[in-house]
Computed example of a mutant assay.
Amino acid sequence: MIWRAVAICILILSATIQVQAQSRAELALKVERLEREMIALENRLRGGAVARPAAGAQGSLDDRALLADLAAKIGTVERQMRTMTGRMEEIEHQQRKLDEAMGLLRKELQLQQQEAADYRANQEVARQDSASSQPVDTAPAATPAVEVPTEPEIALPEGEPSGQYQYAFGFIQKNDLDSGFTAMDMFLKAHPDDALAGNAKFWLGRIHLLKGRLPQAAQQLLALIEEHPNHAKRADALLDLSDVLIGLGSKPDACNALAEFRRSADDASDRLKARAERTAKEAGCTN
């Protein structure tokens, strides 16, 4: 499908550059061969003018026509090389943008891992401080220590995956997106093959989008679209992905995502279809 190009764009661009470079080299060899033929023909014409002055005019005219044809072919190949050079520069520019986006994604993931580690460390310190603040002397005259309230630790409850998913989704329902993201990420890592894994990917992508983390949002939404083609949230994910791509400055890819939405969302709600029309206008889609 067309939208799949977004998911593997880096590999496609790399392969395209290699193909374009190979084609450019072939054109250069073709120009070189035509130029050699043209030089040989010019030498032949000059030699024929001196050595065979009595030869028929028809042969000379044929040679000159061939020389003109070779010159036209060389001009055509050179124009093709210029066009290909411009295309390669455009592709290399797009690849640089994608490399920058992937670099940002790696940094963001590292930051999230560090934040999670810091959070767990802070929770452990808080528990230790709370334990050490309990009074040792239980005599009636002793003043009980005041325990400082701490943030509740986010941990998936024991039990079935469905209950753990509802625990994570409860934070999102309360609009506690940070806690919801942490719990939903824990659920997905614990149950990557569960029936609710697609839902988890959707909500992780949606929270990334709401937080302005566009490369990470694209990664999660594409995972849902690619790995769960029949998921109930696939139509919503395609619309979210089109918003992400517009935010990343890739309106043509956003139009491809919207085209895929139209092809596969016959049963989509009127609300989603109206949103798709508004997004298509914003992206300037013509398809």
Rank of each mutant, 00 (worst) to 15 (best):
R262I: 00
A54K: 08
P229Q: 06
A15N: 13
Q20C: 15
M1S: 10
L34A: 09
I74R: 12
R263L: 12
E227K: 10
K201L: 13
K107A: 15
A223E: 12
E100R: 05
T138W: 14
S60I: 10
F181W: 13
L210F: 05
L209R: 12
M102D: 04
N43E: 14
T16N: 13
R120Y: 11
K107L: 15
K251V: 00
L109H: 11
G56Y: 08
I2S: 08
E90G: 06
A116M: 12
L214F: 05
A71K: 15
D193T: 14
P144R: 13
A71V: 07
Q134E: 13
M1G: 02
P135W: 01
K189Y: 09
I39P: 01
A183T: 02
Q80T: 05
R263I: 08
P157H: 01
E115D: 12
D176A: 09
A25P: 01
A145P: 01
A51L: 11
G59W: 09
A7K: 04
P229E: 07
I154L: 10
E160M: 13
Y165A: 04
D63I: 06
E100D: 08
C9T: 12
T286S: 10
E158R: 07
P192D: 10
L34E: 03
R278A: 14
A265Q: 07
L70Q: 01
S130Y: 09
I39Q: 14
F181V: 08
L67D: 09
R263C: 02
F169K: 14
L109N: 07
K107H: 12
A121W: 09
F169G: 03
N256G: 11
E277P: 04
K281E: 14
A65V: 02
A217R: 06
D194T: 06
Q22I: 02
L45S: 08
Q123P: 10
G75P: 03
N287W: 14
A55Q: 09
E35C: 05
L11F: 09
P215I: 00
E124K: 06
E89P: 02
K189F: 01
D118G: 01
C255R: 03
A141W: 14
G198N: 04
A235R: 06
I17A: 10
D267F: 02
A217N: 07
L248E: 07
P229I: 10
Q58A: 13
G247C: 00
V148R: 10
G212E: 02
A237T: 10
A283V: 08
S60P: 04
A197R: 01
D270T: 04
D178V: 03
D266M: 14
